[in-house]
């Protein structure tokens, strides 16, 4: 049965699934790295993704338009991270505690809202999910075509965002300033630039991306919202940022690694290999711990990550 996994068709389908599954965590991790480079450790990604998944789904259902749904998810993510930003940047509340509170808020609010809005319905309605969008010509290339160029629009966007974020962080003025805040905020403050304004921008962008990442799970994938459906992907995004050493290229590699495990798991179940599915499902979480054991956290983290900036 293991040999079943080694035929070309299966390999192509595992790789294509890897790319597809990487999409939501890639959005979230790229947003998070922007915030973390600005010294803000937003641990509320899981809850933010949940709100994005829920609001995106609800808005698509109410309006019948996926575009409106995506815009609503971006907004939901931005609002969640605005709450976070006010609490940690302006009020200087502990970032870890606030992040945890945000997760609980996202989980509680989305579950309650779902139950309140659809209490008199037998079954929660589904939406029409986004279809795949094969790139002309490129998708006809054998192997590479179906793996890379027969995906949904959001997947292309997520992968395109990798070089964009890299260019922004490492080749733009604002990106340099954001990285400076993560290492030495005082230097920027002394020059008369607002540390808080840049942190707000970075955190809200990060939250909007997490909202979009969450929306991928409903609008581009399952058509339904289920309570706590993000199921740890927000936390994996945090692991991916650390494992990727806070650099977009390596973050992409780390995201692909974790989604490969997930894709493989689906396929192993598909061909009927008799490993209990619980072990397969736990695999990414075990791998996350191992990845963090190998790549120690302190090494490349921004020096002021998680520390609120206070003027003396």
């Amino acid at each position: 049965m293991w040999s079943d996994l080694l035929n070309l068709g299966i390999i192509v389908s595992v790789l294509a699934a890897t790319i597809r599954i990487a999409t939501p965590v890639l959005f979230s991790a790229l947003g998070e790295v922007t915030a973390e480079r600005a010294g803000v450790y937003n641990m509320g990604i899981e809850g933010t993704m949940l709100m994005g998944a829920f609001i995106g789904w609800l808005a698509t259902y109410e309006s019948g338009s996926s575009l409106i749904g995506l815009a609503a998810a971006l907004l939901a993510g931005a609002v969640m991270s605005l709450i976070f930003a006010v609490m940690v940047i302006s009020l200087k509340i502990d970032q870890i505690v606030t992040g945890l509170a945000l997760n609980l808020l996202g989980s509680g609010l989305s579950t309650y809202w779902l139950r309140a809005a659809f209490s008199n319905m037998e079954k929660v309605p589904g939406i029409t999910v986004l279809r795949t969008w094969p790139v002309p010509f490129l998708s006809d290339i054998p192997v590479v075509g179906p793996v890379l160029f027969n995906q949904g629009a959001l997947t292309y966007l997520a992968f395109l965002l990798v070089p964009v974020i890299w260019l922004f962080l490492f080749r733009s003025r604002l990106g340099l300033e954001i990285r400076c805040i993560g290492e030495n905020p005082k230097a920027l403050d002394i020059k008369g630039h607002s540390v808080a304004a840049r942190q707000y921008a970075a955190v809200i962008f990060g939250g909007a991306m997490a909202g979009l990442g969450g929306a991928c799970l409903t609008i581009a994938s399952t058509a339904h919202f289920v309570p706590d459906m993000v199921n740890g992907r927000g936390w994996l995004a945090l692991v991916i940022v650390i494992a990727g050493g806070w650099r977009p290229g390596w973050i992409l590699a780390a995201a692909l690694f974790f989604s490969f495990l997930d894709a493989l798991q689906l396929q192993i179940q598909g061909v009927g290999i008799a490993i209990p599915y619980q072990i397969l499902l736990a695999l990414p979480y075990i791998a996350a711990i191992v990845a963090l054991m190998i790549r120690r956290r302190a090494s490349r983290a921004p020096a002021m990550l998680g520390v609120s900036y206070r003027r003396e």
């Binding site: 709450i83 609490m87 009020l91 200087k92 509340i93 505690v97 606030t98 509170a101 945000l102 609980l104 808020l105 989980s107 509680g108 609010l109 579950t111 309650y112 779902l114 139950r115 309140a116 209490s119 309570p227």
Partner: peptide
Amino acid sequence: SGVPSALIYAVEAIILMFFLIAWAA
């Protein structure tokens, strides 16, 4: 009253957030 009991989980988180804010203030 027909209010879903899942409300409590949202309320717990909201109490926590307001408490953190009030404490910081």
